[in-house]
Write a protein that binds this DNA or RNA. Structure first.
Lengths: 247, 247
DNA sequence: GAGTGGTCTAGACCACCAC
DNA sequence: TGGTGGTCTAGACCACTCA
């Protein structure tokens, strides 16, 4: 029974498998296993934690259901990543009216370091005036601009983030955040509204002033429910729509 | 080993627990256990199907994860329903900017039987011109109209649906559909866009003509992935927003 | 063939609920 | 007190991957 007990003063009047789940999350958070890597086998974890394989299995089942881990039969269990082809744009629910999305074009418009205004600081649990990185970019579909994103990140976590760094990178931002800054986005909340295009937005998205746009405000979280990105997307929904599945 | 085998010609090169899951869904579909009722205990189902309790448990786990069943420790497992207080508006993602939703007011505007136009018939997998029920209603929050819903239903399934019937009923439509017509909505797909209010809509929602509105087109399904409701909601998002959680 | 996750079983005990 | 779902275990075997 190598390591069990109530290490780190966990509250834990919870079933064993939830405590194991907590221990695994702690290790993920500590970076013991990085995005895309495999974690130890169920048998090994069971021995390490001093429980049966079935208990580890149930813990891993929940983590897989929450998309923190990915199981691959015959190969192992892996830390989820946004960097893989298959998992790209995991959080983007935009679909074209006709056919499948061929792959979006990215156009970086701006990247600068600022002091956080109150409303952004509040969302990101920082203090007003703290360092913040602000990014603006467009997404194109078949050569036409469809999404205008404003992205705000805590300056503390993203120290070397520059325009060059963003331009060098291929693939979605979330892949870069993982590999370069060790920040993994594991869940997000979106607030969606309908708004009208102002002059600046209209020019960038090539629509009329006053055209209807979908405003998608996304707050993304890493381990421990810590908010690490605020993003406001304006979607032109004349040839695309936001898809959501309910159950 | 009372009933097992490959009854009903299921394709089934799938694990046992998935076959059991299929059998349970078949019985739900047949109305053997109605919405809100309890299904037999795991032990009894295990005996009935000739498998171990653990296998039934895994089947029920999946059905509970998909919100078809609800487990209640010490009491039993129940068929999910939209009629309970707690589960009302399960599919409505609208949230007020401030505080919790106090409870929405309903105002029925219209209910008539029509022949289905092509685009509705296609979505509901009917033939163009088939009988269809069309309902229009408003939802109010704190006395102000917030949602204008147009709802289309297959006439075949909703034979006695009239204005009086809808007005008599307390609670969401989905509760009425279950108890009066035996139709359970178990999942839905939504397509969301930003649009501008036309004159008629603007008057009903008490906004300016050309105000931005969220258009939420929802296709709801019952057992067997059969579409049974098409709905187009126009949401005024000036004091509310559409909330979505991603993971 | 060795190692991984996936399935299935059987049995023990716990937590919760109703009578 | 008895019945329900919830947890935990131990062991057997299957399906998949890779060297």
């Amino acid at each position: 029974m190598p390591e069990r007990g109530d290490g780190a003063g966990a509250p834990s009047f919870s079933p064993l498998y939830r405590q194991i789940k907590g221990l695994i999350i702690t290790r993920l958070q500590a970076g013991e296993w990085k995005a895309g890597e495999s974690i130890p086998s169920e048998m090994e974890l069971a021995q390490r934690f001093g429980v049966s394989q079935g208990t580890v299995r149930k813990a891993v089942d929940e983590l897989a259901a929450e998309n923190l881990l990915v199981r691959r039969q015959g190969k192992g269990t892996f830390v989820a990543t946004h960097a893989e082809q298959q998992q790209q744009y995991r959080f983007l629910r935009l679909m074209p009216d006709e056919g499948q999305e061929a792959g979006l074009g990215r156009q970086l418009l701006d990247c600068r370091r600022q002091r956080a205004p109150a409303w952004i600081a509040k969302a990101l649990q920082m203090r007003s005036g703290d360092a913040m990185v602000e990014v603006r970019r467009l997404l194109h579909s078949k050569g036409r601009p469809v999404v205008l994103d404003d992205i705000w990140l805590p300056g503390q976590l993203f120290k070397g983030l520059t325009t060059e760094r963003l331009n060098q990178h291929r693939g979605p931002f979330y892949g870069l955040f993982e590999t370069e800054f060790g920040v993994q986005m594991i869940r997000a909340q979106e607030k969606i509204r309908a708004v009208l295009a102002d002059a600046e937005t209209a020019a960038l998205l090539q629509v009329e002033i006053g055209a209807p746009l979908l405003s998608v405000e996304r707050l993304s979280f890493t381990y421990g429910d810590k908010p690490v990105e605020l993003r406001r997307g304006l979607y032109n929904t004349s040839t695309h729509f936001y898809r959501n599945d309910l159950n």
